[in-house]
Design a protein around this nucleic acid. Structure first.
Lengths: 379, 379
DNA sequence: ATTGTTTATGGCAGCGCTACCATCGGATTG
DNA sequence: CAATCCGATGGTAGCGCTGCCATAAACAAT
């Protein structure tokens, strides 16, 4: 009665006293009401209301060696891509007891390891991490995490536990093939800086061109000499793209390969920049020059001309990751270790060189397990 | 020795035993090494390393009735605006012991209250919330939160504790005045849907026009009859903007006011849509039509023509909020309850009707406490 | 009627850490 | 040299909840 160091808020014991039951019964009534009889449940919820009782999650987590925190590691907050994934994650969490804690790795493996270690101190309920490029130490932490781990936004034969994503290689290859079919021959690849997923796209692009006999290393600024171009100047530490970068990179490429007649851009923001550059130079899109992007963000269809892109299902990836997590937490079996959500090739005016369906976006599904069109956007 | 229910990981007691000291000394050595002698600190850190000891944050939080979690409530994850704020927050947190837990309120007061209540269960170290429109219940929770509370992205005479932001009214007024000075007379206001900050901008826009004698309610789609236009159809539950919406809204406004010669857009995304619509119609910008946006996102300067905008210091707001939080946690005094980070009017080609400085962005500082230019972007 | 099984409830102890106070040697002071 | 103070360290008793087991009552099976 002297050494109290509470913060004054009612505890489960107070509720129990008031309701005339044992503390453990209150605990049960709150966690799983079905374990408690109607009569007591009634009394307890009245007591809870009257006292304004709020459970202390730290105590719960300590006692059960398990918190309600779901750790999410994303490489960037700036890119729309991960904002969409996060939205899917939040929508998947809904009003469950789970809470999200996001870590921003900034594409830095050391930082990722650090954040992972920090997250594990909370005894998280689950983890969602982007990609498959964890460091050996990071991989080990994930394997010993003692909670469900979902990797997202890529595919792998050997996920830690489960992976939900799509093939960047295949997506880029399909779009490049579309550009070839549309009649373009000297197709460039525009990229500001490379991460492992960008590299997958680059390889898909190269493969498509190679198969068609049109590959020319001079047409990409991301391959061999990217140090000189893409990562030059102040961009070296900027791991994001801007339209201004798109304009500059396109100019640079054109300087080296004046006969280039199309670009496949590593992302939509660069594609937008490419379009602006064409506007500024008076280059006619799609007649004299084709432009395609990657991700199909909002602005692609509204651009003038509308820009072709690879639609990726970011919202779905985030959402499904949480659904899978919850399922595992509920003890339901889940043996589908690799989930391919696919992608769509969205053909719009910017690559419609022959005027086949100018203006209207044509969506072509290209995916091992195609996702529903439009699923990427929900309120 | 029988009823163990640990998860097997070493505890502070194990470290203490191995180092031959008391548990409390280990605790101190970890939290504030200066409290422990060199010799013991050495022994303890060796023991920590050898055992691979990792502190259990849930236990720490329970024992000290205070966690390391900083709760952040944002109304949207989709908009770049809040992504930038979040980036500032993460950069401000750095590698301190603080961790971020973000709640997405979706511009819903009830959801905000719910998330606030959930966050408080963690006994957070601090709270950062967007805006000043909390519900009475939410406001009460913030006031009784027993931790520093920082409101952001707006200004108020009566913050819960501290507020860091800028005046949306003044910013919009300044930009509207720029449009008037540039020679536009029939200036419209384009907005998809309204929140309290949008309303501040609308009032600033209206005030500027009113003072100049050019105000015409027919030129805004956000005022009286917004239900009919802005929130029509499927947009009603979409609390974000797209360029497609910008195009459609601009068309709608033009239908009602064919002589409109400029628009001030509630955000940059709508401005981009407006620009695309002008491209599609062959309307010359800025000669026949002026366009201005709000926030100055990346793509504004790269557009062709470059788009004028109000630069807001989102990164700085997030960053400074965390810095203030940390300062309060460290017990340092902080009597500056209202911090105005200001804004800049960025004049670019899209509003340069008279051809004064076409092409190059001219930045004019308009702020009570102007922030450094370019501060909004950091790696 | 007896035994076994299930369901509802409670008691106890423990989760891993830190607040609080006590202790103790050594430095400082007059 | 006694009185005082101070920094370093430790012991004890919580923080508020839940895991585990016991118990009692209700019910089913023999």
């Amino acid at each position: 009665m002297s050494k109290r160091r509470t913060d004054g808020r009612p505890t489960i014991a107070d509720v129990a006293t008031r309701a005339g039951v044992g503390a453990i019964t209150v605990s049960r009534a709150l966690r799983d009401p079905s374990l408690v009889s109607d009569a007591l449940r009634q009394k307890i919820s009245t007591a809870v209301r009257e006292l304004g009782y709020v459970p202390n999650l730290n105590a719960r987590a300590l006692a059960s060696t398990r918190s309600d925190v779901v750790g999410v590691l994303v490489p960037s907050l700036t890119q729309h891509i991960f904002a969409d994934v996060l939205r899917g994650i939040y929508d998947g969490i809904g009003t469950t007891r789970l809470h999200i804690q996001v870590g921003n790795t900034r594409y830095d493996l050391d930082e990722e390891d650090r954040l992972l270690a920090e997250l594990l101190r909370y005894k998280p309920a689950g983890l969602i991490v982007s990609g498959i490029d964890q460091s050996p130490a990071g991989r080990r932490m994930l394997e010993k995490a003692n909670c469900p781990v979902i990797q997202i936004m890529d595919l792998s034969d050997d996920p830690v536990n489960k992976i939900i994503g799509f093939s960047h290689h295949n997506a880029a290859k399909a779009m490049t093939q579309h550009l070839i079919e549309a009649g373009y021959r000297r197709i460039g690849f525009l990229s500001g800086w490379m991460n492992s997923r960008s590299k997958g796209r680059l390889s898909g692009y190269a493969e498509a061109l190679d198969e068609a006999g049109f590959f020319d290393p001079a047409l990409t600024n991301a391959a061999g000499d990217l140090g000189a171009l893409a990562l030059r100047g102040s961009w070296d530490k900027h791991q994001y793209s801007t339209p201004a970068m798109g304009r500059e990179l396109l100019s640079e490429l054109w300087r080296r390969a004046p006969d280039m007649d199309a670009v496949f851009c590593n992302n939509d923001v660069l594609a937008l920049g490419a379009l602006f550059e064409c506007h500024a130079r008076g280059v006619s899109v799609p007649r004299d020059f084709g432009i395609a992007g990657f991700n199909d963000e909002d602005f692609m269809e509204a651009a003038s001309p509308a820009l072709s892109s690879v639609r990726t299902h970011r919202w779905k990836v985030g959402h499904d990751a949480v659904v899978a997590l919850r399922r595992q937490l509920d003890g339901e079996p889940d043996d589908e270790r690799v989930v391919d959500v696919g992608f769509d090739i969205v053909k719009r005016a910017s690559t419609d060189r022959r005027g086949l369906g100018a203006g209207e976006g044509v969506v072509e599904l290209v995916a091992s397990q195609p996702a529903a069109i439009g699923s990427g956007r929900m309120a």
